[in-house]
């Protein structure tokens, strides 16, 4: 079971983040003024972080196998372009949603394929994908829409359903499915196995290539939902500028959640808590009325403090582990 496969360090990180999240929520509760609603804080949290968590789950899957995907934001931009072009040509909503999901899935699979066949590390392939897909998104929009002027406006509320009304439910369903799969499924363990040692996998008769591809496949599905929510909650889709820098935010959430950036160790739960933690920091700063000039510095300091503290606590143990 899941509890069994997580080592003490990872478990501690999860408790740490859980405590951190509760602490931040408590802080927000204390800071609330007369007339503010705490229920509102909780109710909005899910839908607001949904794309971060879903993209985070995608990132976690590929980091499990020892890969990484730095092109997530650009992939979402391509999905947004595809969605916008179809909306522009008056296709029914379900076709547009499907195109959005499919675009993200195909590009994620394509990343996996390139990594497998070119034998180039994932970080380089997806670092190349980061600008490449961004350009692709722009070209798709530019060719698909005559007179494309930097953004695609989507007026009809029928096209805003997933992002504006169902984000929370999509998130909840995906989280439950992901956690159950992680706890009982075989595939996530195979990812971790490959992340630990590709060679060992091969010797055991597993196919590391196929495992890698399956991780990118799952990531594509998660990413598709992330894109669907991120794209359909906007009034105007800007393929050239949407979510720039999102990938580092995601990597931050994943690593904060205790997943080893080099693969083979981690959990979906950690990522979810990490994403919430980052979200609640920014919320708490607003509720505390922190000056706009200081917010970023405080956010950075809190992240450093949390990670530094956690690493410092188990440093001794880690050194002992190395000796063993």
């Amino acid at each position: 079971m899941i509890h069994g496969r997580l080592d003490y360090r990872h478990r501690r990180r999860i408790y740490f983040l859980l405590a951190g999240n509760l602490l931040l929520l408590g802080l927000i509760r204390v800071l609330l003024k007369e007339g503010s609603s705490f229920a509102e804080v909780l109710r909005r949290a899910g839908p607001d972080v949904a794309p971060v968590i879903l993209a985070g789950l995608a990132m976690t899957s590929v980091i499990f196998v020892g890969a990484i995907d730095l092109s997530v934001a650009s992939i979402i931009a391509v999905a947004g372009s595809a969605f916008g072009v179809l909306v522009h040509h008056d296709q029914p909503p379900w076709i547009c949603y499907f195109a959005c999901l499919a675009a993200a899935w195909v590009l994620s699979m394509w990343n996996g394929y390139l990594i497998r066949t070119l034998k180039i590390p994932a970080i380089i392939v997806t670092l190349a994908g980061l600008p490449f897909y961004r350009g692709l998104a722009l070209i798709v929009a530019d060719l698909g829409i005559p007179d494309f002027g930097g953004n695609i406006s989507v007026y009809d509320a029928a096209y805003h359903q997933p992002g504006k009304f169902y984000a929370g439910w999509i998130l909840l369903a995906t989280i439950i499915a992901a956690l159950i799969w992680e706890a009982f499924g075989r595939t996530p363990r195979q990812w971790l196995a490959r992340g630990n040692s590709e060679e060992a996998c091969r010797l055991l008769g597993m196919k590391p290539e196929r495992i890698l591809q399956s991780a990118f496949c799952a990531a594509g599905i998660f990413l598709g939902f992330a894109a669907l929510i991120a794209v359909t909650r906007l009034q105007a889709i800007e393929p050239g500028r949407m979510l720039v820098g999102f990938e580092l935010h995601i990597v931050g959430a994943v690593v904060l959640g205790g997943t080893n950036i080099f693969g083979g160790e981690g959990s979906f739960g950690g990522t979810i808590l990490g994403a919430f933690f980052l979200y609640f920091i920014s919320q708490a700063l607003t509720y505390a009325g922190a000056s706009a000039y200081f917010q970023e510095a405080i956010t950075g300091a809190v992240i450093l403090a949390v990670i530094g503290l956690d690493c410092a606590i188990h440093r001794r143990q880690k050194q002992l582990d190395e000796l063993a």
């Binding site: 580092l248 990597v251 931050g252 690593v255 970023e296 405080i298 300091a301 992240i303 450093l304």
Partner: peptide, 13 residues
């Protein structure tokens, strides 16, 4: 990666 991601935000702040 996480150290410098943190300091990236912190120094910018």
């Amino acid at each position: 990666i996480i150290t410098t991601l943190g300091t990236m935000i912190f120094y910018r702040g």
